[in-house]
């Protein structure tokens, strides 16, 4: 099953923020299945896209050593539907971190207008909780990040290219 809800990273600064693009296209079944007669990207998948950007922001901050999961959507507000042809500009900001989780705020803009905003909380699964072992098959996360142009734009807080993490 395909589960990529961001098309491309456009900016990534380690431990700080990230931006990306999600293009809404009518060839995605969910766009016309969700609300019959009214094509739109389901709002929950905008949360998912922002969570994918934010989850990688959190994951990278901890050197890809944690098992990061979206644990809570603190708030989500939608101001306009995302229709086929729309290009959503996602932006996420790392707000706070703990040894057991992190919070991220995120926005989606379309044509310069605020389209949605969310507060997300990520938790780090402890070993043995829910499932054992890594959350991704070997190489899957790395492949996903490559497809999303992560390594084209990702820099450290000092502006240097993100080093390759052995844990990926």
């Amino acid at each position: 099953m395909r589960w990529f809800w961001v098309d491309r990273f456009t900016e990534f600064v380690s431990g700080s923020h990230a931006s990306g693009v999600k293009n809404v296209a009518l060839d995605e079944e969910v766009v016309d299945d969700y609300c019959l007669g009214y094509t739109m990207l389901p709002p929950t998948l905008i949360i998912e896209g922002l969570a994918q950007l934010g989850g990688i922001l959190v994951h990278e901050k901890f050197g890809f050593t944690k098992r990061v999961v979206l644990a809570k959507v603190g708030s989500a507000k939608y101001y306009a539907p995302a229709r086929p042809g729309d290009s959503l500009q996602y932006h996420v900001k790392l707000e706070r971190t703990q040894d057991s989780g992190a919070t991220v705020t995120g926005t989606s803009h379309c044509d310069g207008e605020l389209q949605a905003e969310v507060d997300l909380m990520f938790a780090f699964l402890e070993e043995g909780h829910l499932i054992d072992g890594p959350l991704f098959n070997p190489g899957d996360l790395l492949a996903m990040m490559r497809m999303m142009n992560f390594f084209h734009v990702a820099v450290t807080a000092d502006g240097e290219p993100i080093p390759f993490h052995e844990n990926l």
């Binding site: 644990a71 809570k72 706070r96 919070t103 909380m121 938790a123």
Partner: peptide, 11 residues
């Protein structure tokens, strides 16, 4: 999971 959320909010 709420305890983590409460901790973040109090911080």
């Amino acid at each position: 999971i709420d305890f983590l959320d409460i901790v973040f909010k109090l911080e």
